[in-house]
Simulated assay, not measured.
Amino acid sequence: MNLHSANGFQGNNIVAKNKKHAGFSLVELMITLTLGLIISGAIIQVLVSSSVTNKLNQAVSQVQESGRFIMSRLSKEFYEVGRYDLITANIDTSVDIVAEAAYVQNNSVALAGDFINNATLGTVQTGSGGSDKLVVSLLGTSDCTGNRHGYPVDTEFHVVNHYFVVGSELKCTGYDGRVLRGLKSQTVSPITVTLLDNVESFQIQFGVSDEIMTSQGQAISYVTADQLANLRASNQLVVSLRWALMLKSYQNEVRQTTAQKFALLNEAEKTMDTAHYYQVFSKTLALRNMKNFVRSSR
């Protein structure tokens, strides 16, 4: 083989090697980068959407769990409003229990002025969209906080429970009704407990009977607390409760696209923020003890 042929063969090998090690062209790189950005953007969007959905699901679950808990608890406690059992209950007899029974049954929903030792304590219809306040009387072994106020175990006494909202907390303060009425000196101080956090609104309406001398114990209308005094003076008593609670999620990053609007019972509609999940829980409960009392009073 001559030198010219050898040089030609060597040149062909160099060209072949250069072809094997050639990189992407600028156009190919731009296409690749563009596709990569599109795919990365799609993945990020999926992750963001998944995160938002997960936060919303957590918020819904949390609010519903809280709603079920508080509605169950309030139902059990409200069901006893107006109860005074003179036959089978083991009642502390340090006061006149017949007079006490009449007081509890006729004042099952307490109003301001009912208690001589706390004249301002009573059920309130709060204006300007604020949460209502509920004060009820019943015979029980303890108040809403579990406080027995020094009474012996298993004995029952006049319990007064005050439900109200401070900030975003639904609270309850329990009292000894006998102390409030001036029949007994206070030996154990009232206790206040928080029943639930993240409460946006608490509203109450009252189902009242017609005049008790002719009543069947059915609610003929639902009214607000500011109407109760006049109805009580007309011998119309509360025989059922209707309440509504608006709860909001703990999370403030739900980021809903549309603001939720709610109207609780008689309240005006309110537009809530989009950073929380809100839900309303409501219930109407017949007060069995009050229905029976009204019927027996005919």
Rank of each mutant, 00 (worst) to 15 (best):
I38L: 14
L139V: 14
S50K: 08
L74D: 06
L228E: 08
N147D: 09
V81A: 07
A101H: 00
L74R: 05
N106L: 06
S142C: 02
T32P: 03
V294H: 01
H158R: 08
K248S: 03
D85H: 01
N292P: 01
Q216W: 08
T258H: 06
E169A: 10
G8S: 10
E211A: 10
I14K: 10
L231S: 07
T145V: 07
A101F: 03
L180C: 04
S137D: 05
L183G: 06
N147V: 08
L264I: 12
C144I: 03
A110L: 11
A99W: 05
L287S: 05
S240T: 09
D143W: 01
L47S: 13
S209W: 00
H4C: 04
V46Q: 12
N252A: 14
N230R: 07
S66R: 15
V95M: 04
G41S: 14
H162Q: 05
R68C: 03
R178Q: 11
R83H: 02
S66C: 09
Q10S: 14
F115H: 06
E169N: 10
K261V: 13
G217V: 02
L29H: 06
G140W: 04
S40C: 12
R242I: 06
I43A: 15
G67W: 02
E77M: 09
G11A: 15
P152F: 13
N118I: 08
G122D: 09
M30L: 15
Y278K: 04
Y163G: 00
V193K: 02
M71I: 12
L231P: 05
S108C: 01
D92E: 11
K19D: 05
